[in-house]
C-alpha cells in the first residue's frame, strides 16, 4: 500500500505538466485516440473501394452502407430489430447475471459449495454455447424464451467464474476484521465479500455482455423473425450485402457503447479503485 501511494504520486507530477502542455488530461487523450482509430480505418476503406482495390460486391463502401443505414432507419426496420435485440439482451443479462453473482459469492465464501459446484462449472463452461442452441430451441421453443436463455447462459459463466475469483482474492485479514467486529454471515456477504470482489465482478460483467452480444446474434439467425441477427441472416438470403454490414456495424457500435457505459459504471461503483488515476 505504501509503495503504491508513492508511485502514484510520482506519476501525478509528469501528468500535471502534460495537462498544461496539451490542455488535456491523459484520460481524455485516451478517449480521443479511441474515437479516431476507427474513423481513420473507415476513410482508408472508402478510398480503397473507390480506386477499385476492394471488390464493392463483398466490401461495399462505407458511404453506401451509410445510405442503406439511413433508409433502414426511415422504414423503422432497424430501430425495431435493434430494440428487440436489446430487450432480449437486457432480460438475458438479468436472468444469467444475478444468479451468477449470488452463486459466485456463495462459492467464494463456502468451501463445500465450491467443492460441489466447481467441477460442474469446469465441465459445462467449455461446451460451445452455439452447440447448445438446438437443445435450447427444443426446450424453450422458437419464442422469446430461447433467445433470453441463450444470452443468460453466455453471461452466466464469465460472471460466476470472475466472482468466485474475486471473493477468493480478498485478503484473509478482512474476514478476520468482519468476524472480530461481530459481522453476521449476511453482513460479511454485504460488507466484505461483495464489495471486495467487485473489481473482478465488473470484469466478468464486461466479458458477459460481449458474450451475450455474440450469442444473441447467433440465436436470432436460427430461430427468430426479428432482431439484429435475423436482419443479417435475412439480408444474406436476399443478397442485400449493405444491410448485412449495417447489422454488423450496429452490433459493433452496441458493443462499444456497452463498454463505455460499463467503464463509467465501474468508476461509480468502485470509486476506491478507479479514481487512483484521476
Amino acid at each position: 500500500m505504501e509503495t503504491r501511494a508513492k508511485t502514484s504520486s510520482k506519476e501525478a507530477a509528469p501528468t500535471a505538466a502534460k495537462v498544461e502542455k496539451w490542455g488535456l488530461s491523459r484520460r481524455s487523450k485516451d478517449r480521443i485516440i479511441a474515437v479516431m482509430s476507427p474513423i481513420v480505418l473507415l476513410i482508408l476503406w472508402e478510398v480503397t473501394v473507390r480506386v477499385g482495390l476492394l471488390d464493392a460486391r463483398f466490401f461495399p463502401a462505407p458511404t453506401s452502407i451509410a445510405s442503406t443505414f439511413v433508409s433502414l432507419l426511415q422504414t423503422g426496420e432497424l430501430v425495431f430489430n435493434t430494440w428487440v435485440s436489446l430487450q432480449r439482451l437486457f432480460f438475458g443479462f438479468l436472468l444469467g447475471g444475478i444468479p451468477a453473482l449470488a452463486l459466485g459469492v456463495v462459492m467464494g465464501l463456502s468451501r463445500p459449495v465450491r467443492a460441489a459446484v466447481d467441477p460442474l462449472i469446469s465441465a459445462t463452461y467449455p461446451i460451445p454455447k452455439s452447440a447448445i442452441l438446438p437443445l435450447i430451441l427444443l426446450i424453450f421453443g422458437l419464442g422469446e424464451a430461447s433467445k433470453i436463455v441463450m444470452v443468460a447462459i453466455g453471461v452466466f459463466f464469465p460472471v460466476v467464474i470472475n466472482t468466485v475469483a474475486g471473493v477468493l482474492e480478498i485478503d484473509k485479514i478482512y474476514h478476520d476484521v468482519g468476524k472480530n467486529y461481530g459481522a453476521s454471515r449476511w453482513q460479511v456477504f454485504r460488507t466484505v465479500a461483495l464489495p471486495g470482489a467487485m473489481p473482478l465482478i465488473m470484469t466478468g460483467v464486461k466479458l458477459g455482455v460481449g458474450m451475450g452480444l455474440i450469442l444473441i446474434a447467433i440465436a436470432e439467425m436460427v430461430g427468430a423473425k426479428s432482431g439484429l441477427g435475423f436482419m443479417i441472416w435475412n439480408a444474406w438470403q436476399t443478397f442485400a450485402v449493405e444491410t448485412m454490414y449495417v447489422g454488423l456495424v450496429v452490433i459493433a457500435v452496441l458493443g462499444f457503447l456497452f463498454s463505455l457505459l460499463l467503464n463509467e459504471l465501474e468508476r461509480f461503483i468502485i470509486p476506491w479503485k478507479s479514481d487512483q488515476q484521476g
Partner: peptide
C-alpha cells in the same frame, strides 16, 4: 458491549469503505 476489538497488524481497514 462487545467483548473485544482488535487493532490488526498492517493494513486491515476496508479499501472499499
Amino acid at each position: 458491549r462487545p467483548v473485544n476489538s482488535m487493532i490488526f497488524q498492517g493494513d486491515s481497514i476496508f479499501p472499499w469503505m
